[in-house]
Simulated assay, not measured.
Amino acid sequence: MELATQPATVVIWGGFALAFVFGAVANRANFCTMGAVSDVVNMGHWGRMRMWLLAIAVAIVGANLLGHAGLVDLSKSVYQRPTLNWLSLLLGGGLFGVGMSLAGGCANKNLIRVGGGSVRSLVVLTFLAISAYMTLKGLFGQWRASWLDPVSLDLARFGLKDQSLASMLASSSGLAPKTALLAVMAAVAVPLLLFVFMDRRFRANPTQWLAGLTIGAIVTGGWYVSGHLGFGENPDTLETVYFATNTRTIESLSFVAPLAYSLELLLMWTDKSLHLSFGIATALGVVLGSAAWALATRSFRWEGFASLQDLRDQLVGAMLMGFGGVTAMGCTVGQGLTGVSTLALGSFVALAGIVGGAVATLKYITWRAEREA
């Protein structure tokens, strides 16, 4: 499967390199959104949550400074479309949160675990990819398109060209778009940074704060690779396009839909219309980056299912994550980092659903364990 254009090659290898570092850093720092939520709910410990919030803040600042400088156009991303599918985002996010709690981790965490030797996570990712593909193009997709996506809000009716919070502020206040962008960016990122670094234990833990900074910068790098280096003229059609992205527009890290496209590519490898993409390369990069760290530190361990109950929970969780992740247009990384970095209203709705679903499920799991004790 040869790539026809140099920009596509740059995008694929750039995405792979960024994800490779992501996988190694996330393995080293035990970066996991579900784990962060679980730490807060079950132990009142905010260390990993602060790491995640720091990554969000850095991604917001980095992505929007790129946009402010004119290096990328975040309004072209799928997160900024003027139609707000609020029911799909909220329900999909909620089901993803339930699924990742049952499966013991989100798509990103399971990619990292595969790199560390977890056969269990490989099974989870396989069922997640099947469910995601069914939600993109199969039976689940019919349900989503017929029942959920039509429940939406057309923001164009309110004079908005996209769903960026900055656009909303500019429209309502009369501020210049770039001024509104900087104002919203500061209003969201500065409180996050203050909350993150006000904790002395977090400041004294360089592993966590360096990981948060690095992961946020990687998401920013993803926008630059696909939205700047991968933006140019197609020599065949002479159209200006975004090369090697599944959405055919600007992307950064996200793992649910790319896992579905990875499965499709493996199943139909001889189909010449299918090619490697930024998303597929990043999914592979996370696994190999995590594996490199695990092998270098001798922490690589084969892992299977603990019990039949564990198997059932993991598979149910995987199916919910596949459906929920596509319906919500992203996972804890795809929406929780990448989507939120665009300051899209829908990304905050999806993120609220993910966290709400995870919290409710974790509390239920705790209640069930106490009842059975």
Rank of each mutant, 00 (worst) to 15 (best):
T327M: 08
S121Y: 03
F22E: 03
G317P: 06
V225A: 13
N246D: 15
K109F: 08
D271Y: 00
N246F: 05
A318P: 08
L253T: 12
V41D: 02
K363T: 01
L267R: 11
F255M: 10
L267V: 04
H275L: 14
L65Y: 07
V316W: 12
G97S: 10
L210P: 03
Y133H: 08
L71T: 02
F140P: 03
M198L: 13
A373H: 12
Y364T: 03
G159I: 08
P82V: 08
V184N: 10
P191E: 11
L259C: 10
G325L: 10
G44V: 00
N42E: 04
L362E: 01
G92A: 01
G62T: 03
A156H: 10
W86S: 13
L210I: 09
A24L: 07
F255G: 12
V11P: 09
G232R: 13
N246P: 09
L213S: 09
H68V: 05
F300H: 13
R120M: 07
W209H: 06
V123W: 14
V98F: 14
G174H: 09
K161G: 15
T9H: 08
V256C: 14
V61D: 04
I56T: 04
T5A: 07
Q309I: 03
E303P: 15
P206W: 02
T220G: 11
N234D: 15
V114L: 08
N205K: 03
G230R: 06
